[in-house]
Design a protein around this nucleic acid. Structure first.
Lengths: 133, 133
DNA sequence: TTCTAATTAAGAATGATTATCCGAAAGAGG
DNA sequence: CCTCTTTCGGATAATCATTCTTAATTAGAA
């Protein structure tokens, strides 16, 4: 009973920490497979989810895209570039008050909320400008 | 050039309006197929997406679940019950100001944002209470 | 060292969605 | 009305992300 600390498990969490920017399971797999070619994709998925359960990683469910895994555990928001798809953290405090507000109006026992912002990142703004608007 | 107003297209939009509570493509298909058995699932998907493009429907991308289609066009938020999975509208005004705030801090050209709240719905709170705790 | 439950690799299976194919039907123009 | 062009529909194959299955392997307790 309990979780076994396998090599694969160590490689998975190390990869998420190395890749930093919320890698997808696919990206984690690609990272590991270069130095440990025997790992299988199912193992990566299983370990990612088990690490989320244990509380060592966060899962970010991205609408219309693969799930992403985050080694930053504090609650925070994300922003997605509508042009290049880049997916980044937003550095703002968590809005506790809107949970309270919604709890009152909906009578739900509120847990938390996610916000995904969407817009064009600075880099893509440049590129689009050069292509003539 | 231009969209043809086919029977299938009419059935799709009518079904979304009848079903009201952001049906999935599957639910729309099931609704239509009872009175028009020849319709194919691909056609439902194609028309749903085309209606979204035209601006007659909204698509709600649900994390870890099938996309949902909404005939209410005003921007609004959603809340998901962590117990039964119910997915509902939240009746609150759109928070314009946080887009501005994030635009300033990230230098993104902001488009919009989605908020998904999570908590236990009143119905499930009752059920959980009766089961002790 | 031995034992056993947890974990693995490989690949099949799943669920949601999109792509492909080809024939049908609708609108434009004669 | 008759063609021509284009869009659209139905059937089904393909894709993508993910989970499941199976038999073999392994970590860690005894």
């Amino acid at each position: 009973m309990g979780k076994r600390n396998t090599i694969q498990r160590q490689l998975v969490i190390a990869a998420v920490r190395t890749l930093e920017n919320h890698p997808t399971a696919e990206e984690v797999y690609n990272c590991i497979v270069t130095e440990y070619p025997d790992i299988s994709k199912g193992t990566v998925y299983r370990n990612l989810n088990s690490l989320v359960e244990t509380g060592l990683l966060n899962k970010v469910a991205v609408p219309n895209g693969a799930d992403r895994f985050d080694h930053i555990l504090a609650r925070h928001y994300h922003i997605e570039c509508t042009n290049c798809g880049a997916f980044s953290d937003v550095d703002t405090e968590y809005l506790e008050d809107i949970d309270l507000k919604i709890a009152n109006s909906t009578k739900y026992k509120m847990d938390n909320h996610d916000i995904v912002f969407r817009g064009v990142c600075p880099k893509c703004q440049e590129i689009l400008k050069q292509q003539g608007h």
